[in-house]
Design a protein around this nucleic acid. Structure first.
Length: 262
DNA sequence: ATGACGATCCTCGATCGA
C-alpha cells in the first residue's frame, strides 16, 4: 500500500501535474493540502478517471484539504473536534478518512505568520485540537497516521540554515512542543529518505533559487502509530515533482507499507 | 540542469504563504 501527502498549492493550478504524478507514482491514497478551491470546483471527475474516490474539505480562496483513495474511502470526518477558528471563522484544514482499514488525517496546520501574531496563537491552539483528536482516536490495533503540511520543522537539521530562522515561526519551542505531544500520544515522525543531498526537505521557496541551491525545509510530515510505522517498508521525498515550471513549492512525501487490505 | 515567486479574486494590487 502506497500512501502520500502533498501540499499542491492550488489543486486546480496543479491539476496537470497532479494527474501525471498519480499516473507515474501510482499511490493508493494521497493526502492533499492547500487546495485553494471550493469543494464544488474540486476536479473529482479527472481524478476519478484514474480510479480515485475523493473526500474533500475545501472552501474559498485559501487552505483546503482532501484525500484521494483507490482502495476505498469511509468514515469521513470533516474538521477536528472543537477546532479553533481564526478571526471568528473555522478554516478548512483537516479531514479524517479510513482507507482499507487505515485511519488517516490530511492536515494543513496554520502558518502562524510571525511569533506573537494572533495567527501564531491560533496555530498553537489548532495543534492542541489536533492532539485531542489523536488521543480520541487512539487505537493500538489499527494503523493510524496524521499526514500533511505541519508548518513546523521538527529539528534544526530540518531547515537549510537554522541561523536564517532566528526569531521565525516554524522552529520555535512551543511549535516543536506540539510535535512532542503527538509523540507522547504514541505517534512517530516517519522521516523519509532524500533522493538527493543529505536532508529530506519537502518545501523550497519559489524565490531566490531556493530549490537548485537546496535551501529547503522539512515541514511536510507523517506522524504514525506503531501499527502503521511497523508496516513501513520505505519512505521518500519525490523531489522530481518540485522541478521545472508549474511545480508546487512542496514535494510529495511517499510512504510504502506492507499492509493487506481488510 | 533544478534557474532568480506564485495563486487567488472582492482582479492589474493586495493578501497569503514560510
Amino acid at each position: 500500500m502506497r500512501i502520500a501527502t502533498w501540499n499542491v498549492n492550488s489543486v486546480t493550478a496543479r491539476l496537470p501535474r497532479l494527474l501525471s504524478w498519480l499516473s507515474s507514482a501510482e499511490p493508493d491514497v494521497v493526502c492533499l493540502q492547500e487546495l485553494k478551491c471550493d469543494e464544488a470546483a474540486f476536479p473529482s471527475r479527472e481524478v476519478g478517471e484514474l480510479g480515485y474516490d475523493v473526500a474533500c474539505n475545501g472552501g474559498g480562496r485559501w487552505n483546503g484539504v482532501a484525500v484521494l483513495s483507490r482502495v476505498g474511502l469511509g468514515d469521513i470526518t470533516t474538521g477536528l473536534a472543537d477546532e479553533p477558528g481564526f478571526e471568528g471563522e473555522t478554516q478548512r484544514r483537516a479531514i479524517g478518512v479510513t482507507c482499507a482499514g487505515v485511519r488517516l488525517w490530511s492536515v494543513y496546520v496554520p502558518n502562524g505568520r510571525e511569533v506573537g501574531h494572533p495567527h501564531y496563537t491560533y496555530k498553537l491552539r489548532w495543534l492542541e485540537a489536533l492532539h485531542a483528536t489523536v488521543l480520541a482516536e487512539r487505537d493500538p490495533g489499527r494503523p493510524f497516521a496524521v499526514l500533511g503540511d505541519f508548518n513546523i520543522a521538527p529539528t534544526d537539521d530540518d531547515v537549510w540554515d537554522i541561523t536564517a530562522f532566528a526569531g521565525s515561526t516554524h522552529v520555535t519551542d512551543p511549535e516543536r512542543k506540539a510535535l512532542t505531544m503527538l509523540a507522547e500520544a504514541g505517534l512517530t515522525d516517519l522521516v523519509p529518505r532524500a533522493l538527493k543531498y543529505e536532508r529530506p526537505y519537502t518545501y523550497w521557496d519559489y524565490r531566490q533559487l531556493a530549490f537548485p541551491k537546496n535551501r529547503g525545509m522539512r515541514i511536510d510530515l507523517v506522524y504514525a502509530n506503531a501499527a502503521f510505522a511497523d508496516a513501513v517498508t520505505d519512505a521518500y521525498v519525490d523531489r522530481e515533482a518540485r522541478k521545472g515550471k508549474g511545480a508546487s513549492d512542496h514535494a510529495p512525501v511517499v510512504v510504502d507499507l506492507d499492509i493487506s487490505a481488510r
